[in-house]
């Protein structure tokens, strides 16, 4: 009888720049169903944070309710975390972020948590361009409550019991684009090669970074006829580009072929290098991103990779001109600047 992860790791496990092995980024052993796509996404998050040499205490994990929202327990045990109520993760993230802008905010949600009960919260977080990574582990169903169709289930997609879904889906990527989210990406839990650089880029992007990850529910939605199964997603995924995230310290070695290779500079000196696979598409151009998405949908393809990025986005703190220091570091002098300052403010309002 186990269910305890052994303490031993590979003796040759490499160490990153801050002196940690991957073990320091792991979480508790997963209690999700064996083979759940969500676990692969957790593993991708662990790998991305390890490779980026992030100090775990600089990350805050936030989630709602669902199998997907349980995953923060299964990665980054040494980070901060808040498991909120169903669909309310964006509010908690907003509050936390406003209080302390220095942390990296990792929001994890499900398609139920986001596209149904949390829809109102989701769209406003985008609209405000809250600086966070927002991952939806999208399995087209309510996994935790035994697999009911969710709002992202495709029309006609077959349930495990054989009933087709009668409703049209909400496409979260189109919605995020429509709302001009400043970073929009789509991926597949079974494609870590693509997912890991996307997560790294999302963590560097100064604004709302949305990644919709197809993440099969092995237990309730991996049957024949489902459009969220391992087989279906593998057969229908079409990648926009091969993506590489290049931290600022590294020289870019590849020669860029005009039109095929795109180099996107990020605010902190790092780069995204994209080898384009899709034609007539430019990730910096909102119209072409929309077009690419619509055309792919028309072809019955799931477009994956980075779809759109606005590197000059204005995150919420800039819009609000809020404190550039975390609130918990403000001293009495900062909070109560004295009667002279009060005079000044009062007279400015007269």
């Amino acid at each position: 009888m186990t269910y305890i992860k052994p303490e031993f790791r590979h003796p040759n496990l490499p160490v990153n720049e801050v002196g940690f092995t991957k073990k320091e980024y792991e979480g508790r052993i997963s209690t999700l169903c064996a083979g759940c796509g969500h676990d692969s996404i957790s593993a991708a998050i662990v790998q991305a944070c390890y490779e980026m040499s992030i100090e775990p205490h600089r990350v805050a994990k936030l989630s709602g309710i669902g199998c997907s929202s349980k995953t923060p327990t299964y990665f980054l045990s040494n980070s901060h975390g808040f498991n909120s109520v169903h669909g309310r993760m964006p509010s908690v993230a907003t509050g936390a972020n406003l209080a302390n802008r220095d942390l990296i905010y990792f929001g994890v949600s499900g398609d139920g948590d986001t596209a149904s009960i949390g829809m109102g919260q989701f769209v406003h977080a985008i609209r405000r361009n809250l600086n966070m990574v927002y991952i939806v582990m999208n399995n087209g169903c309510y996994g935790l409550t035994k697999g009911q169709d969710s709002a992202t289930a495709d029309k006609g997609s077959m349930s495990k019991k054989g009933a087709p879904n009668p409703f049209a889906p909400i496409d979260l990527v189109s919605l995020a684009l429509e709302l001009e989210a400043s970073f929009v990406a789509q991926s597949f839990s079974g494609d870590k090669g693509q997912l890991i650089p996307l997560i790294k880029a999302a963590m560097h992007h100064p604004g709302f970074s949305f990644i919709n990850v197809m993440s099969p529910c092995v237990t309730f939605n991996n049957n024949k006829g489902s459009t969220k199964s391992y087989d279906f997603v593998r057969d229908h995924a079409s990648s926009t580009s091969v993506l590489d995230f290049i931290p600022k310290k590294e020289e870019i070695k590849v020669d860029y072929e005009e039109g095929i290779q795109v180099k996107v500079a990020m605010h902190d000196g790092s780069y995204l290098s994209l080898h384009k696979l899709a034609r007539d598409w430019n990730p910096l151009d909102w119209v072409s991103a929309n077009e690419a998405l619509i055309k792919a949908r028309d072809r019955g393809e799931i477009l994956t990779g980075l779809l759109y990025i606005n590197p000059k986005s204005n995150p919420l703190h800039d819009t609000l001109k809020s404190s550039d220091k975390p609130l918990n570091t403000l001293k009495e002098k900062d909070l109560c600047p004295g009667s002279k300052k009060l005079e000044e403010i009062n007279s400015s309002l007269r």
Binding site: K5, P6, E7, F8, R9, H10, L13, I29, S30, A34, G35, C36, G37, D39, S40, S42, A43, S189, G190, K192, P216, V218, N222, Y230, D231
Partner: peptide, 15 residues
């Protein structure tokens, strides 16, 4: 095998 990667992700010693 359905190539879900679960075994690869969980293996404590990265085998």
């Amino acid at each position: 095998c359905i190539e879900c990667d679960a075994c690869m992700d969980v293996c404590p010693t990265s085998c």
